[in-house]
Design a protein around this nucleic acid. Structure first.
Lengths: 419, 419
DNA sequence: CTGTTAGCGCCTTCAA
DNA sequence: TTGAAGGCGCTAACAG
């Protein structure tokens, strides 16, 4: 029923081996023969059997890109950039695709029907949506391992549960052993990072610190923080950067060790406002002015409402990311407060929509596209890994209209005022 | 080096066929044997060889989801929803993953190491980013065909070039012939749609019509339209809906046949403002008040500036989608005009951020998540296709703060006024 | 319920 | 430069 290599060979009057050789372009083949084969391929409309090919060659042209949330542009931008480097041979550029031609030296005979059975280095870059679930992440990794993927790119923060860290680490080691190139993008390096080709980590901590320093310089002291899910590295690093800045300014401080002290990282911490543990007044504030949620708009909205309830005098809200910041803005406005006059708001990531927010969002820019593209190149072996396999990617503070000095009379004032 | 089925068979003291059977769960196997095999699998840390399996079974567990722009939540939401239905056996719900357990009846022995060599119905849902390029679309389809994908979901509008339509159609037919289930989501049905399991099309035309009718009811008559790329079905349908409404109100009208009359759909039409072709004054306006661009923020910005230049008295701008609308808002504000007092703005899609725009964006809601999920189910054969294989998905008008009656003195007035 | 027997379609030495 | 032959790891009939 389906056309096979043998059929093409017969039509071209050569052996199957020869057809294989012209298709893969790894071996010298006489130009005449080659032409004949290519013609037969087109005439028969032959399409290589991937599984058979992968089985025999013990490797496939699949490259997996794992993302936490495919509906979030944060991941979409990185994934798209990576794909643009992986898809066609040397696509390179920003968004330009080389088109269907290319391949192993052909110049697109037989009209634009092309894009047939050629194998030449074409990789199938696919993105897998883990939904932030560690189990799904592991499952996808196994599926990719099963497919003998050529490379795997893991994007975004990792879950910090030691059991999962270990499981992921073990899995990546196996993948690497099997010849799969593993690249981390926007994720901190693994403990024993030998398995990984390269790890591109964002400077979340530094970015967060500079952002909060900006707020402090403006004169804010009561700064609320809407954090992401408690167990993620990204969440922890950004929160730590924020707290570092606060402590350096003599605010908050005390207990070390991050954010793992609340159960489940939910929005339910509010009821424990009196739980003084460490004793230090600073610690009290630090926890009281932090609410965890998801990296989505709704969480930003709910968390901000909670923050305003806990501390009506808050003059600034720092959100885990831009999306969360949008939710925060909505909550603030709903309470009849103005941005930035009554409350300043800041985000993180500098997603495309952030500049269009009203007022434009002060945030921390992460070079998502560049990082994704670099990860793609690394995965393809088109770029040499950074020394030690680890690179930290800078985060740039973008000051815009959503942050301003606090009101002189301090605090947001009563919550009842209508606009 | 790598563990194979035979190794597992040897360790479990059964034949390879038996191992295969317990792994695939398609055949009755004695409970005792089954346990033994599973234990051996875990002990050996065996992972099924996908290519070999696909080769022998003549089908793979790969499901491809093609999107035009992975960085656009419009596609991300649909793709994520589809994946949630495909990933795990019966995940079903909104965003909840069943976790790594599951599989063919096991209850997760040996800790959470799990997610190993089980094959049971697990599909690898992958999204492929075409970047809107027809060539890439074709290439991905070929790659998927090569992998013997179990199913393919095409999302979003199609390019209207007949040559490509034909090429895609032919390719889909081949895929279907090879047993791949093809589903269209947010894309109009094909000419000869036999190859397709189902086509879920959005009511872009109806939605656009109702949106413009809303504006007309408000009293607007000089309405600018920022359209998407000229050659896409989505662009055409939305524009036609808009013009239908305008004509029904006695505005615009005349020449039939859509938007294909400008070269390349660029922003370059402005210089031709005097080209009166049809003769009817309405036609003139229709084209003068339409500018094409991409489905991104920047295009919305640039196109709106152009629209304001062509017709300073414009009182409303309808954008091709919400992202474009954001750019339009930026342009309008930059010209010192207020939304909606001076100029009303409307979008399309109702993406999550639209409700957070200031003022909140009037738009047309498309049930992206539901549609994506349904497409996923259809692709998995978990849901029976609609009659005729075609379903039109409703679009709901969402009236919010960005649209209001035009100013009584008409028009946006001079552009120099500062806020 | 389980083992045996053939391939699935291609790549890759090894010769020629 | 090309052909011949073996096997990659698994599944799918058949027997038993």
């Amino acid at each position: 029923m389906t056309v096979t290599l043998a059929d093409v060979a017969a039509r071209a009057r050569v052996s199957a081996a020869t057809v294989s050789r012209v298709l893969n372009g790894n071996y010298p083949v006489a130009e005449a023969t080659r032409e004949r084969v290519l013609r037969a391929v087109d005439e028969l409309d032959y399409v290589l059997n991937g599984p058979a090919s992968s089985l025999a060659a013990a490797t496939s042209d699949l490259v997996g890109i794992l993302v936490n949330d495919i509906a979030d542009p944060f991941f979409g931008i990185m994934a798209g950039a990576a794909q643009s480097e992986i898809g066609e041979s040397g696509a390179g550029g920003d968004a330009g695709w080389a088109g269907a031609g290319g391949g192993s030296g052909r110049t697109g005979s037989s009209g634009r029907t092309g894009s047939s059975g050629r194998a030449g280095g074409e990789k199938l870059a696919v993105v897998c949506n883990t939904g932030g679930s560690p189990e799904r992440e592991l499952t996808y990794l196994t599926l990719l391992q099963r497919q003998r993927a050529a490379a795997v790119i893991l994007t975004g923060g990792a879950v910090e549960d030691p059991a999962h860290q270990a499981a992921i680490s073990a899995k990546l080691t196996k993948l690497a052993d099997a010849g799969t190139r593993v690249v981390l993008c926007g994720r901190p390096p693994l403990a024993g990072g030998e398995a990984v080709v390269a790890a591109l980590a964002f400077d979340n901590r530094g970015g967060a610190r500079r952002l909060t320093e900006h707020l402090l310089a403006l004169g804010h002291t009561r700064i609320g923080y809407v954090a992401g899910p408690a167990e993620r590295t990204t969440t922890r690093h950004r929160l730590e950067g924020h707290r570092d800045a606060m402590r350096a300014a003599g605010l908050g401080g005390g207990v070390r060790g991050g954010i793992g002290d609340g159960p489940g990282g939910g929005l339910d911490g509010g009821e424990r406002a009196g739980d003084e543990v460490g004793g230090a007044r600073g610690t009290y504030d630090e926890e009281r002015l932090t609410v965890h949620g998801l990296y989505d708009r709704r969480s930003g909205y709910v968390a901000t409402l909670e923050l305003l309830r806990r501390e009506p005098e808050v003059t600034a809200i720092v959100a885990a990311n831009d999306t969360v910041a949008l939710g925060a803005c909505a909550a603030i406005r709903e309470r009849g407060l103005r941005i930035p006059e009554d409350v300043s708001v800041a985000g993180f990531d500098d997603l495309p929509f952030s500049v269009d927010a009203v007022p434009a969002l002060t945030t921390v820019r992460l070079p998502l596209f560049e990082a994704g593209a670099r990860a793609g190149r690394l995965a393809m072996g088109k770029e040499t890994p950074p020394p030690g396999g680890i690179a930290t990617i800078g985060a740039e503070l973008m000051v815009r209209g959503s942050t301003a000095p606090p009101r002189v009379d301090g605090g947001a004032g009563t919550v009842s005022r209508e606009r």
